[in-house]
Simulated scan of single mutants.
Amino acid sequence: MKKVQKLIEKMNEMDLDLVLIYSVENSSKPSTYYLSGFTGSFSCLVIAKEKQYIITDSRYFEQAKSQTSFELVEFRGPDFIGTIASVVRQFNPRKIGLEFQRISHATFLKISEKIESEFVPIDQILSEMRMIKDEEEIANIKKAVEISEKALQKTLEIVKEGVSEKDIAAELEYNMKKLGADGTAFETIVLTGPRTSLPHGRPTTRKLGKNEPILFDFGAQVNGYCADITRTFFYGNPSEEFLKVYQTVYEAQTLALEKGSAKLSGKELDAIARERINQSGYGQFFGHGLGHGLGLEVHEEPRVNSLNEKPLPVNSVVTIEPGIYLEGIFGVRIEEDVVVKEDKLERLTTFQRELIILR
């Protein structure tokens, strides 16, 4: 309940009487899990300073009782928002915090029709709370990283000429689950040959050929928390240009890992890696930010890019993932998961960053 108590402190600062976390078809699953521990796809949390409720339907009655200390309100139909309103009315709230970015305009109109209160956005508050991880959260991410890396090592055993991207991706996902992952953090990316120039391409039936790169972008999920790792390998004999590009990406990442800390903003850290890539003449081929926050979602705050001028918070977890993408030829990306500390970046990933050539 520490997270709920912290939210209540924020509510006091904003003069809020109540917070609603509305999640239908997982629309606010991260916030729901973060605050209550509930993992179902259909619920509404009603958080008052003196009491907290979870409203859900019969699919999740038993699950809610076992996963959260919030008092269960059983929704038995047909009007979910009406049931929420009936719980809210007992508090006679003046101001209610709501995640504006997690609900549709149509849903907001229905809620505001049934509940005559002032609604205030709390998206930024929850984002800032989730940015800073406690020891348990960091341990979950570290476990997800460990499983991911072991699964990758096992999957490399089947990588050979003639095996398709889809088959390799399926093997990697199977290995992560077999090693203890609850699931995958996002859709696994495995790309081969010229398709490695697609920063977020999807696996296809294309088969790995001789003398081609292969790129993995993947992550396990453990207790709701995500890993996000990228490694680029080469199968066969790499060209001089590939070796140059790989070394450039590697050096850019190394500089960021060595110089990064909570003393720098996301913009400043991004600039360190970007400058190295610019010096090599590949600046125009590095089109995305250096990294992003990692936690219950694979992309969350803080951002490590040119738009974030705020210092990176101590105990936030971010990715460091420079890349160079030569359209239709090849791409290289290396991605690390790190914990931001006062004077350094603490690596959670341990898998070799130097180029591995597969034979």
Rank of each mutant, 00 (worst) to 15 (best):
L358W: 02
T184F: 07
Y250I: 07
E135Y: 09
K263P: 00
G236L: 06
D79I: 10
T319R: 03
S197V: 07
P194D: 09
S86Y: 05
I21W: 03
Y174M: 10
S164M: 09
K207W: 06
F234A: 01
E71T: 15
R59A: 11
F70M: 14
F42I: 10
F91D: 02
E128D: 13
S261R: 01
K310H: 11
H200M: 11
F100D: 12
Y325V: 03
V24F: 11
A227H: 03
G40H: 07
V145H: 06
K267T: 05
V222S: 09
L355S: 09
E74D: 09
F75P: 01
R276F: 08
S36K: 05
F91Y: 15
F100I: 13
I356P: 01
I147P: 04
G323T: 08
A262R: 04
I214V: 15
R347Q: 14
G328K: 14
E149P: 04
G77Y: 11
T192G: 12
G162V: 06
I54M: 03
F75L: 11
G328N: 15
L312M: 08
H288T: 12
E146T: 12
K154I: 09
L257M: 14
P30I: 01
R195K: 14
V304R: 00
E62M: 08
E297P: 00
I357E: 10
M11E: 07
I103L: 14
I357K: 13
K133N: 10
E212R: 01
G291R: 00
S86V: 05
E301K: 12
V19C: 12
S261V: 02
K142L: 10
T350N: 10
E50K: 15
F70Q: 03
T205Y: 07
L208I: 09
L257N: 03
A252N: 00
Y282D: 01
I96M: 08
E13L: 12
T350P: 00
G289K: 02
N308R: 07
F233A: 03
